[in-house]
Amino acid sequence: MDRKEAFWHILYRYLWPFPYFRDVTQGSLLERQQNYRYNRRIGIHHLPGFMLKWACLTLFFFVLGNVCEELLEVVLPAACCFVTGTWTLTIAVQLTVAWLWLRRFPELGR
């Protein structure tokens, strides 16, 4: 029997990068340092792709909100698009900060 993965799970894995990282607050100092090195190695290369995805989503929702407001003259859907665009912008900023942090601090502090 061939089991297919649910669409929502695929979308979650495509957009949400945080499960791919390891917890650096648990374990001994050596384990925390190893986890930080792993996060740094993964994050520096893969976070820009996730940042681009969320930036595109942000742009999409703000453009859609603008279209709803200007061309269709409907306020509620436009407001929903702008709120969703703000949420996606928040995630894009979090990803950017995480990427900059991993690039700036090569080792975990003691």
Rank of each mutant, 00 (worst) to 15 (best):
V74A: 09
G85F: 05
A55I: 05
R13L: 10
Q26L: 06
F21P: 01
E69H: 09
I10M: 12
H9M: 06
G43P: 03
Y12D: 09
E73S: 12
P19Y: 09
R37C: 13
G65R: 01
E31I: 08
Y36K: 00
Y14A: 00
V83E: 14
W8Q: 00
P17A: 06
Y20H: 12
Y38S: 13
L52M: 13
T84V: 13
C56F: 13
F82G: 03
V74T: 10
L15V: 05
F50P: 04
I42L: 08
R37K: 14
E31D: 11
C56Q: 13
L29V: 13
R22T: 06
I10Q: 09
N66A: 14
M51G: 00
G43Y: 04
A78N: 04
F60H: 05
T58L: 13
N39M: 04
E31V: 07
L29H: 09
F21D: 01
W54V: 02
R13W: 05
L11V: 10
M51H: 05
V63I: 14
Y36M: 08
T84W: 02
G65M: 00
I42N: 02
P19N: 10
T25N: 13
P48M: 05
V24P: 04
R41Q: 15
Q34K: 09
V75Q: 08
W16S: 13
R32C: 04
R41G: 10
P77S: 10
M51F: 12
V67C: 06
P77R: 06
K53D: 03
G27R: 10
V24A: 01
Y38E: 12
V74I: 15
L29F: 14
V67F: 01
Y12M: 11
L11R: 04
F82D: 01
A55H: 05
H46D: 11
P17L: 04
F61S: 11
F60N: 06
E73P: 01
Q33H: 12
C56Y: 12
D23Y: 00
A78K: 00
L57H: 11
Q33T: 06
L76Y: 15
Y14W: 03
R13I: 08
V75P: 03
N39H: 11
M51Q: 08
M51D: 05
H45E: 15
R32M: 07
V83N: 13
P48A: 03
L52G: 12
G65E: 02
Y14H: 01
C81W: 02
R37F: 14
G27I: 11
G27T: 12
C68T: 06
A79D: 15
F21M: 08
G43M: 07
E31T: 08
W54R: 06
L30G: 06
E70R: 01
L76R: 13
F18Q: 02
Y12Q: 08
R40L: 09
H9L: 10
Y14P: 02
V75A: 13
F18D: 01
C80N: 07
Q34Y: 00
V74S: 07
L59K: 09
A78Y: 05
Q34T: 12
M51N: 01
H46F: 11
V24M: 08
V24Y: 08
W54D: 02
L76N: 12
L76E: 15
C80R: 09
Y36Q: 09
C56A: 14
W16H: 15
P19G: 10
F21V: 08
E70A: 06
R37E: 14
P17T: 01
V75G: 10
L76T: 14
F61W: 11
P77M: 09
L72N: 00
C81P: 01
A55L: 15
R13C: 10
